[in-house]
Amino acid sequence: MNIGIIANGPRDAIPSLSRFGFIDVWIGVDRGTLILLENKIKVDIAIGDFDSVAKKEMDFIKDNTNQFELFPVEKDETDLELAVAKAMTFRPNALYIFGATGGRFDHTLVNMQLLLPIAKEHIKAVIVDTHNYIEMTLPGTYTIEEDMNYENISFIPISKHVLGLTLTGFYYPLIDKKIEMGTTLTISNKLIRKYGTFSYTEGILLLVKSCD
């Protein structure tokens, strides 16, 4: 199962949702639910405090959502965190988050950090916008397919260091390399074949595929 969550980020940062027909369950977060409905996508769950929608809009969401969950405005979690927690109950194979970047930087940063507990549950954890595909990874071996939407590929350490990083099929290959947080060594790489692989043995690594 693949789950898509769409938050209330800037609309111009949300890619064409028609590219994501493989998503099985859609969750709308607050006003992000309206974006799904405007794209004629069936909303399985709408969740949040809905403080950014008018009453008429909330009624429209309620009438066009299989499951509606309303939370108080004053709470410990953000609406997106609530949506992630809800998605995790399905035990999906992958969770794709849209509308989580492009606005306030504190929101963008914490939304990226929300990917870590997802990855720790062995669920593919991804944020997608018009310019970036951001995936949180843990030690292991991964295959990357060439994607014309996001040709640049960077690897960013989230932990103090990453050990044993090996890149094959890339313009700049690596073999068993240690990289430290703060290094720019692994920024702006590209595939030289249809597929490449990366692997590492210790640490936390953010895979960022992007376009100019």
Rank of each mutant, 00 (worst) to 15 (best):
I153Y: 03
I204A: 08
G203R: 06
T183S: 15
G99P: 03
N152M: 11
F105T: 10
I23N: 07
N93E: 14
I23F: 12
V73F: 11
R91N: 15
P92V: 05
D106F: 13
I123R: 05
T137D: 08
E145C: 07
D44F: 09
I97D: 00
N2F: 06
S210F: 04
I123Y: 00
W26S: 10
G102P: 03
A13H: 14
I123L: 00
L115F: 11
Y150P: 07
F198M: 09
R19M: 10
E81T: 10
G203V: 00
K194Y: 09
P72F: 14
I97Y: 02
K56S: 13
F22K: 12
I47K: 02
K86D: 03
V84Y: 06
D76A: 13
E38C: 01
A100L: 03
P173D: 13
N132S: 15
G32L: 09
D63F: 08
L114T: 05
G99M: 02
T186V: 12
F105A: 04
I41P: 05
H161T: 11
D49L: 07
F105W: 15
T33L: 01
L163E: 15
R193N: 14
T183V: 10
A85I: 12
V29Q: 05
G169A: 09
E145H: 13
N66H: 12
L82N: 08
F105P: 00
N2L: 11
M88L: 15
V208L: 14
I192K: 14
E57T: 05
P92Y: 03
F20Y: 15
K40W: 04
G48E: 04
K160D: 14
G99S: 08
Y96D: 02
D30W: 02
E121A: 14
K56I: 07
D30R: 05
N111C: 03
E69D: 09
G28S: 11
A7D: 00
N64H: 15
L185P: 01
T89E: 15
C211M: 10
F98V: 09
D176Y: 03
K42E: 13
I23R: 01
L95S: 03
R19L: 12
D63N: 15
A85Y: 08
F71R: 13
L207P: 01
F105E: 07
M148D: 11
T78P: 04
D212G: 06
M1V: 14
I192D: 06
V208C: 11
S188M: 10
T143G: 02
K190D: 12
F60L: 12
F155D: 04
N132F: 06
D63K: 15
V73C: 06
V25E: 11
E77P: 05
L163S: 14
R193Q: 13
L206N: 06
P92T: 10
T78C: 10
V73E: 07
D106L: 12
D24P: 05
R91F: 05
V126S: 04
L34C: 07
T101A: 04
I27D: 01
L206P: 07
E77F: 10
D12I: 12
G9I: 12
I123M: 01
I158W: 09
L17K: 12
Y195N: 08
G102M: 02
I134S: 07
I204V: 13
F198G: 00
D79P: 06
F90P: 01
I23Y: 10
N64T: 07
T186M: 14
G32F: 04
I5M: 10
A125G: 03
